[in-house]
């Protein structure tokens, strides 16, 4: 296999990794915001249920969660994964990828929720009171006063999670999703050439390098005021 062929083979894993990353981020951030509001709810049962959920998700390994999610349909609902694939007219690989997305979104939503909760609770009560005496309702207060400030306060910890997510995508292989490391390993097994693993490593470095630059730009853009 020459370099071009190896890269072409790696591309499959590369694509799945990026796809998992983007979908997780796009869904887990809004879901995390919803979960954070639930964890601060004045309705006690919802609040404690949400806190319990966050405790379980953050207290157990993501790998375990991926495996559990993949077993839920067949064991809990008696729906073998094969029949799901058949129902949607798609491959088992796609169904496994879907399980991964579900597990990742739930896991990252819990982490983001905690970050957002911290950010929201760090805004002083004076901001709410100033909004109230200006006639803003609750929704308007969050939309125009609280959340824009939360964005600034949480961009650094959210950035850390984003970088971690890039590396966590490698866990998808536990249910057979051929993410980039798995696809590199397949090539190594085939060609007895260790280089693909280094290419995979380079992929992570470059990907995270780009993300670091983007996150830095965002932080700088939000630097127009001090707290």
């Amino acid at each position: 296999m020459n370099f071009g062929q190896i890269l072409a083979q790696l591309a499959e894993g590369f694509g799945l990794t990026i796809l998992l990353f983007i979908i997780t981020l796009a869904l887990a951030i809004p879901l995390g915001l919803v979960v954070s509001f639930c964890s601060m709810s004045a309705f006690k049962p919802l609040k404690y249920l949400t806190k319990g959920f966050i405790w379980v998700i953050r207290g157990t390994p993501l790998m375990l969660q991926i495996i559990v999610v993949s077993f839920v349909p067949s064991i809990v609902f008696n729906l073998p994964n094969k029949s799901i694939a058949g129902f949607f007219g798609t491959s088992m690989a796609n169904v496994n990828f879907l399980f991964c997305v579900i597990a990742f979104v739930i896991n990252y939503a819990a982490y983001f929720a905690e970050i957002f909760r911290g950010g929201i609770e760090s805004i002083s009560v004076g901001q709410y009171e100033a909004s109230a005496v200006l006639g803003l309702n609750k929704r308007q207060t969050y939309r125009y006063v609280i959340l824009p400030q939360v964005v600034k306060r949480t961009v650094a910890p959210v950035g850390n999670e984003v970088i971690t997510l890039v590396k966590d995508t490698s866990l998808a292989r536990v249910i057979g999703v051929v993410e980039i490391i798995k696809s590199a390993q397949n090539i190594v097994n085939l060609t007895v050439n260790i280089m693909p693993l280094f290419y995979a490593g380079a992929f992570y470095l470059i990907f995270n390098g780009v993300l670091t630059i983007i996150l830095g730009r965002i932080e700088k853009k939000l630097d127009y005021y001090k707290i």
């Binding site: 004076g126 009171e129 100033a130 200006l134 006639g135």
Partner: peptide, 25 residues
């Protein structure tokens, strides 16, 4: 609006410029 309030600690909106602080509501 019936009542307006000026606080001891100002409570301006730090993420908005002065003009937007005044115009927001």
């Amino acid at each position: 609006l019936r009542f307006g309030m000026v606080f001891q600690n100002f409570n301006l909106f730090p993420h908005l410029n002065i003009l937007r602080n005044i115009t927001l509501a």
